[in-house]
Design a protein around this nucleic acid. Structure first.
Lengths: 133, 133
DNA sequence: CCGAATCCACAACGATACTG
DNA sequence: CAGTATCGTTGTGGATTCGG
C-alpha cells in the first residue's frame, strides 16, 4: 500500500534501495504538501506565468515565499524556469510533465473542496457550537 | 476555474456569498494542505484506528501534532471520533464520507510521488550539481 | 490510554534594502 | 523586473507534565 511507503516502516528490508526510496518519497511529499506549493502549481496550470503574475495571482503570498517555493519546485523538476536575457529581465515559469501530473491531483483536491464546502461548513458549526444547545 | 476561487480575487462580486465561499475554500485548503493532515488521512484509509495506532503508524509525528490535526480534521467533518467510555479509554478514528473523498485525491498524490520518484531524483541531482561540471 | 496545557528552542515568515 | 540577503518578529512544533 502506498501509505506504508510514505509513512510506515519498511517491514523486512529486502533491498536497501527500498528504504531509501521511502525516505525520498516522504521528503518529496513533505515538500509538496504545503499550501503555497500547491497554489503555485494550480495557478500556473497549463500556462506560462511571470514572477509578478504569479505574485498577483496568489492572494497573500509574499515575495520571499514565492521565490522560495519556486526554487524548491524547480529543484524537484516540477516546473521549468526560463530567463529571457533582456532588460528588464523576463522570467517565465511553466509546469513540466511531472508538474502537470501533480497538478491533476491538486485539481482533484480543489474539486473536492468545492464539493464538500457545505458539509464542512455544517460540521464546523456543530463542532464550534456551545456545549449546550 | 477552480484556481480563481481558491486564490484569485473574485472579480466583480456578484454575490456576497461567493466571496465568502472563496475565503472559506481557501481556509479549508490551508487546513488540509499540510503533510500531517494528509498523512493522517492516508493512514486511516478505510479502516478504524486508535490514537496510539496512528502515532505508531505515522513515522515522526509528535503527540501534539497528532492531537492537533485530529481535532482540526474532526472539526472540518473529515473524520469521526468515537470514545469508548471504558478504562483505560479507547478512542477510535475513522474517515467520514468527506474524508474518504479527500483520501481519494491524496491517493492520487501518493501514486504520483511513486511514479515520478526517479524523475525528481534526477532533477535534484542536476539542480544541486556544482555550477561547472 | 487519551488529551489539554505549559514552556521554550528554533524555523518560518514578512519587511526592507541592495544587486544585475 | 527578478532575485538574494539580512533582520526582527511571529508562530510552529517538540518535550514534558498533569488530569480524566
Amino acid at each position: 500500500m502506498v501509505t506504508k511507503q510514505l509513512s510506515g516502516d519498511a517491514g523486512a528490508a529486502d533491498d536497501a534501495d527500498l528504504t531509501r526510496a521511502d525516505s525520498l518519497a516522504r521528503e518529496i511529499f513533505s515538500d509538496v504538501a504545503n499550501k503555497w506549493a500547491l497554489l503555485i502549481i494550480e495557478t500556473i496550470g497549463d500556462g506560462t506565468l511571470r514572477f509578478t503574475e504569479l505574485r498577483n495571482g496568489i492572494e497573500g503570498i509574499s515575495h520571499k515565499m514565492l521565490t522560495q517555493n519556486l526554487r524548491m519546485l524547480e529543484r524537484n523538476g516540477l516546473l521549468e524556469r526560463t530567463v529571457h536575457p533582456t532588460v528588464p529581465p523576463r522570467v517565465e515559469y511553466t509546469l513540466t510533465e511531472a508538474g502537470q501530473g501533480l497538478r491533476a491531483t491538486v485539481d482533484g483536491m480543489c474539486d473536492w473542496t468545492q464539493r464538500f464546502l457545505g458539509h464542512i461548513e455544517g460540521a464546523r458549526r456543530r463542532f464550534d457550537a456551545p456545549v449546550n444547545g
